[in-house]
Design a protein around this nucleic acid. Structure first.
Lengths: 203, 203
DNA sequence: AGAAACGCTAGCACACTGTACTAGTACGGC
DNA sequence: GCCGTACTAGTACAGTGTGCTAGCGTTTCT
């Protein structure tokens, strides 16, 4: 196997075993059976490694719509679906250019009825997608039935925040922070149903 | 002057001069004219130093923070504080131009070390602010004590999402949707403490 | 064929980081 | 006196990311 592949493999295993793993140069290199120099050659900076790993994970993790895959618990499925939304954004430069076009088409120009309509189309599409996931989960009882619009809005906001954070300059370990935030959001949606205006009914 | 005071003073100066200062043991100790051992005695861990400094700064900087207003329940106070962050963004045009400058200064340009540093300064500032609120709430028992970084990240992501949604074209009633998601976020933070395990990634 | 260039690997060195530990000093109570 | 406590200084250790150089094989040019 090639060195680069060995490195990514080792890093993926480490992250899979312990999500808070630090992925230090020497630890990953040792696990991959590779020297730190080789690792540095393929990934000039530690950040580069983390970005590649993130891309790899998302790529490998989501082949098709995971919401119907009953072998996974609902939490995991919803998590994967949300990841699927974030995945095509890429990281760093990719995310930045993606945000650039989004900014230029939706925020910068005069707010004519046309751009409004264009954005609302996207928005509705995204809402439909998330709503679909929530209804599927509600059908199998993982989530109280009813009106999910609040939860949909909540999840979309979290996704928006994460996506913009991908474009912004960031310090290390976007990966852990991102999955933790996603976990928190999913946790919240799955624990409090659609019918909790202010009631402290928490698990 | 006592050593502890000298240390806090030096750290405060360093933070004041450069917001992105790393506040390493040796740097602070040298600036305070004190040995690392003394610093370690007064602040057993680096985290302790940062916490003390944070408390010092915010206490001195804004004596009447809505977070201290004990007449309101913790939920409301945290909510108000978060709103206080969102407020200066304005709505519609204002938010759009605000996002425009943010985009042009942080996302669009080449990611030099300079823009990274500038953004990270903002980021750190925001983190400190939210962290301060959470520690205050933790002190009065509204929130389990411990490490709040996960919750801080979560709240910041939600704030990011809401702020960008303020700039995006929107249909009516952003306001209610916004308060609802804010409510959900606060709810989540106040219900689940900092000790929810970050389990391994499953696939 | 010989030489030069290149892709890649290994390993070490450097400048950092946070923390633990020991030796030593000042001071107050008995 | 003498002991215990509070504190300081300095060093040591195990980490971290990154840069550098020497060497290996293969490829490509002359």
């Amino acid at each position: 196997m090639e060195t680069r592949e060995k490195i990514l493999q080792a890093a993926a295993e480490m992250i899979a075993e312990d999500m808070t793993a630090k992925l230090s140069v020497r630890a990953v290199a040792a696990r991959a059976g590779v020297s730190t120099g080789s690792l540095r050659f393929h990934f000039p900076t530690q950040r580069a490694l983390q970005d590649s790993l993130l891309a790899r994970i998302y790529e490998h993790l989501l082949p098709d719509d995971p919401i119907r895959d009953r072998t996974l618990p609902p939490r995991e499925r919803l998590l994967n679906c949300l990841r699927q939304v974030l995945a095509p954004l890429g990281t760093n430069e990719d995310a930045r250019t993606a945000w650039g076009t989004a900014y230029r088409t939706f925020i910068e120009p005069e707010q004519t009825e046309e751009v409004r309509a264009a954005y609302l189309a996207h928005e509705r599409e995204a809402e439909r997608r998330v709503e679909h996931w929530l209804t599927v989960l509600a059908e199998e009882g993982a989530l109280p039935p009813g009106d999910h619009t609040r939860n949909v809005r909540f999840l979309l906001t979290v996704l928006n925040g994460l996506s913009v954070e991908r474009a912004l300059p960031t310090r290390e370990s976007v990966l852990i922070a991102e999955t933790e935030t996603l976990n928190a959001a999913v946790d919240h949606v799955l624990s409090t149903g659609p019918a909790s205006p202010a009631g402290p009914i928490r698990r």
